[in-house]
Design a protein around this nucleic acid. Structure first.
Ligand SMILES: [Mn+2]
Ligand SMILES: [Mn+2]
Ligand SMILES: [Zn+2]
Ligand SMILES: [Zn+2]
Lengths: 138, 138
DNA sequence: CTCGCAATTTAGAATAATTATAATACTATT
DNA sequence: AATAGTATTATAATTATTCTAAATTGCGAG
């Protein structure tokens, strides 16, 4: 636990983020709960450990994490941003029955925009599916 | 214009949508303005022609269009849904400077979820990029 | 160690998109 | 024309997010 905390601090520093209690706790939550949570999911759990936690802090922290490349923001559904600590290239699948957002491996993606000779700049790429997962489809 | 209207009515019927003045006007707007508009963009233009138009009608109509497969909903940015009358498989690129959402052709996409042996059901696929377009990147 | 300052956090108000509700208007049928 | 069913409207309610200003924290200089 102490070890773990040192580790979390190191991750934050690596991304140029000054560690605070709140930032450490939020990072720990994201690492241990890889459920692509929204703000409410993060806040409602953490506020039990830290009763003075403000929702604004959760917003501020996740904006900071995203700006510094520590997390990604997912727009897989309307009216709600999801957050992902996994930042290597992968897509998502949201099951409309069980509501779980699954990671999806991308083996090959070839578009006019991700070609080598594309002259613009790409900041972000997002591949999302919606449907029924294997378990729910039966 | 009269001819065009007959055409719009035919499109609506083809998708099982009862044609009303509002639905015809909204469909016409989408066909003639392929800018992936949000609700506000559609409403603010059409309310000038139809002063009694309600924003709720724009929401209702676009929900209906989407449910019947006449349009797609795009979640390319937080807190705002965009609508697209083009429904064949393609992706999008949003330039963060000029704000334009460009269509992107997909030549090849290969993931664990769109393979033939995937046992779940896929209702929707969305491929989004964000960055700077060629013009703005210079 | 303690003071001062800048960064961070907090609580709550403000904003913006969307959804819900209930009344009104339209359309097709008898 | 009366009826029933559907669509539209105006507005209220809800929800996610951003803004603001005050309070708190924690680090570094003295
Ligand atoms: Mn993921
Ligand atoms: Mn498009
Ligand atoms: Zn499922
Ligand atoms: Zn541009």
């Amino acid at each position: 636990m102490l070890n773990n905390n040192i580790n979390l601090v190191a991750i934050l520093k690596e991304y140029g983020i000054k560690p605070s209690i709140q930032r450490i706790e939020i990072l720990e939550f994201l690492i241990e709960n890889r459920i692509h949570p929204n703000i409410e999911a993060i806040y409602s759990i953490l506020v039990e450990k830290m009763p003075t936690l403000s929702k604004a802090t959760v917003y501020n922290t996740l904006d900071l994490f995203a700006k510094n490349g520590l997390t990604n923001r997912l727009f897989i559904e309307a009216n709600e941003v999801r957050y992902d600590i996994r930042t290597d290239r992968h897509g998502h699948f949201k099951c409309e029955k069980c509501k779980i957002i699954h990671d999806v491996e991308i083996y090959n993606l070839d578009t006019e925009i991700n070609k080598n000779d594309y002259k613009g700049m790409i900041y972000a790429e997002e591949i999302n599916y919606r449907g029924l997962c294997e378990a729910c489809a039966k």
